[in-house]
Design a protein around this nucleic acid. Structure first.
Length: 226
DNA sequence: AACGGCGACAACCGCCGTAGG
DNA sequence: CCCTACGGCGGTTGTCGCCGT
């Protein structure tokens, strides 16, 4: 039951873009800048809907796009960000200059998933295949700098996947939770993993802004839910 | 050479959040 | 407060090219 179509499609072009259309779009945006995608096609002389123009520009024509193969560093960064953010491709893309959400999403589905599986890691949970049979809790939390960051996990017990947005909870609440129970860590990473994996020293720009985890403060993980 | 399978990636579709009337 | 338009996002599909048979 979605919204009505963004434009009258009967006389609109669909499918692959041709050079002339690209040129019209690029010329128009160079002259007038981005924005008002709905009226852009008509103004630019294109028989496309605004959404299609936006997508073409964002994913293909923008001059700041990097294109070309992903580097090993980008691979690893994507994996780490995905383990924290889940399928939030636009957020992940925000940490990879010159890469688009669509590009990263495609790359994830075609390359990285397979790469993780070959390492014996479940690409949805980022845990080893064996661990993945153990249900995840409904929420998990850790300290990021001095902020307590809480994650949610979506789906039934057997197949729960990460579903952030991370929620920032104040330190006091975090301490209370810690003092009031002896829960162990949980979530995508076990306490043991955290202690031994230096890769988890990450610079992250989540909803809390630019924050750096350190070895001493990171992952005072605490299970809240379930 | 012809064909089918498969991977890669561009593009589309449907939905959501939000701003403005 | 409701409705609508719009931008944006994530999931899915369509198409093309490569490769093996």
């Amino acid at each position: 039951m979605g919204r009505s179509p963004c434009c009258e499609k009967s006389h609109m072009n669909k499918g692959a873009w041709i050079k002339e259309e690209d040129q019209l779009l690029v010329d128009y945006i160079r002259k007038h800048g981005e924005g008002c995608w709905r009226s852009l096609p008509r103004a630019a002389g294109l028989q496309r809907c605004g959404k299609s123009c936006r997508l073409r520009w964002m994913n293909y024509l923008r001059p700041d796009l990097k294109r070309g193969n992903f580097t090993e560093e980008e691979d690893e960064l994507i994996i780490k960000l995905h383990s924290l953010l889940g399928n939030k491709w636009s957020l992940i893309a925000g940490r990879l200059p010159g890469r688009t959400d669509n590009e990263i999403k495609n790359y994830w589905n075609t390359h990285i998933k397979r790469k993780l599986l070959s390492r014996g890691i479940d690409p949805n949970t980022h845990r080893t295949i064996n661990e993945s049979t153990i249900p995840l809790p409904k929420t998990a939390a850790f300290l990021l700098n001095d902020e307590h960051v809480k994650f949610g996990f979506a789906g039934p017990d057997e197949q729960r996947t990460i579903k952030p947005e991370p929620m920032v909870v104040d330190r006091e609440e975090y301490n209370n939770k810690n003092n009031n129970n002896n829960c162990t860590s949980s979530g995508t990473t076990s306490e043991k993993d955290i202690e031994t994996d230096d890769d988890y020293v990450l610079n992250l720009e989540l909803s809390v802004g630019l924050a750096t985890t350190t070895k001493s403060n990171r992952y005072e993980s605490n299970r809240i839910g379930k």
